[in-house]
Simulated scan of single mutants.
Amino acid sequence: MKAVIVAVNLNDKEEDFEYKIQELEGLVEAAGGTVVGKVYQKRESPDPAYFIGRGKVKEIAQLVEGIRGDTVVFNVNLSPVQISNLSKELNVEVLDRTDLILKIFLNNARTKQAKLQVELAYLQHQLPRVYGGKGKELSRIGGGMKTKGAGEKLGEIKTRTIKDRINKIKKQLKEIEKQREEQRKSREDNPNILKVSLVGYTNAGKSSLLKRLTKRDVFISDQLFATLDTKTSLIYFPDIEKKVLITDTVGFVEDMPSEIMDAFMTTLKEIEDADVILHVIDISDKNWMKKKTTVENVLKQLKLQDKPTITVFNKIDKVVPSKDLIEEDVMENTITISAEKGWNIDKLFDILKKYAKQKEEKHGVCILQNSQ
């Protein structure tokens, strides 16, 4: 994919706009593409037909032809009409921000559950576009078309086929959720098992931390949304005879598309069932505070803001050259680490042990109360 990115500034501060452009470039790279051109426009409101101005559309068309680009990517979400109009004018594939994220998800999903979740999100996002010409891409997702009669319009056929496929996927995901629910019930209220969920902005280093804590082989890549599949691993503390089940979850991103949030709700339930959350933050990222807030807002959406949380500032090795230079964390439930180098992992283990003991004590109190 040779992409021209189109960044539209709708009254954003300059620094926020630059941040969004950088993230868009990272998303293009994660989708396997290369940014070959950039076009910027500042607008107070979107144009109903193209989102950008008509003059800017012609400018982009000339640029795409001149550098032989094959894709135009917008940093905003476009309506079906805008997608259709832009595709006709530019004569190349046009993707909005959600399209791009879903393209990455389609490439990176590995397990049956992740593939179904991504397909569901993709179909729900594309469904309004079937009459705008975008629906032709859906044939590779949902299988062949079934018609009810020669007089049925192509758009109606596509719509019916997509809706049938969406319903089928939802049923399959419900079955998977039933299986997961049984697994969760078997672990519920076990005082010897601490359930931990890893959350964080995409590419914060969650997979690296999971690998370091569990000594498991985990796929790691320095790209956005490198891993989508939920992984649950076991840590055993023989000195206190406690087990920790730690689950990695899909990384979050600013303005997470609602289709993805809805489709991945089964996976996100793992966070709901956790005893404690590890919020992993890339401390070497200059935008870490903004990304921290994004994750906290997602947790609020899930009504999990009051769940016990440990803030894990990761990648400190990219900020200081030696473990000896790490300043001591003064805030409670906060720790600075390097998952790659193993710095302060022993201290993180100590924090997890503390929570494991607290769960046992709390469970013991509950048993006493119920027996009275």
Rank of each mutant, 00 (worst) to 15 (best):
K347S: 05
Q41H: 02
E360Q: 14
E188H: 12
Y201Q: 02
F252N: 06
E259S: 10
T294P: 01
G33T: 11
V295D: 01
R187K: 14
I235M: 15
A226K: 07
I21D: 08
V312D: 06
L198K: 03
P321W: 13
K88E: 05
K136E: 04
A61Y: 08
A31H: 07
T293V: 12
I169W: 07
Q124S: 13
Y201F: 08
E181Y: 09
G69V: 11
P80T: 07
T71S: 04
I176E: 01
L213V: 03
Y122L: 15
E188T: 01
V250A: 08
E270K: 04
Y131N: 14
Q126N: 12
Q223V: 13
G33E: 02
D70M: 04
K347Q: 06
E137R: 14
T266E: 12
K300L: 09
I157M: 14
L116E: 03
V35P: 05
Y40W: 07
E332Q: 13
I246K: 11
M256D: 03
K115H: 07
L86V: 10
A109I: 13
L299R: 13
G32C: 11
K2W: 02
K291H: 01
A356S: 14
T147L: 14
P321T: 11
G55D: 05
K148S: 10
A109S: 11
D255Y: 07
Y201K: 00
S208F: 10
V81C: 00
I67D: 03
Q369V: 15
A31F: 10
A150S: 09
D239Q: 13
G151K: 14
E361R: 15
K170C: 02
Y40V: 05
V320Q: 04
D306I: 00
S258T: 10
E18W: 04
L24A: 11
G143A: 13
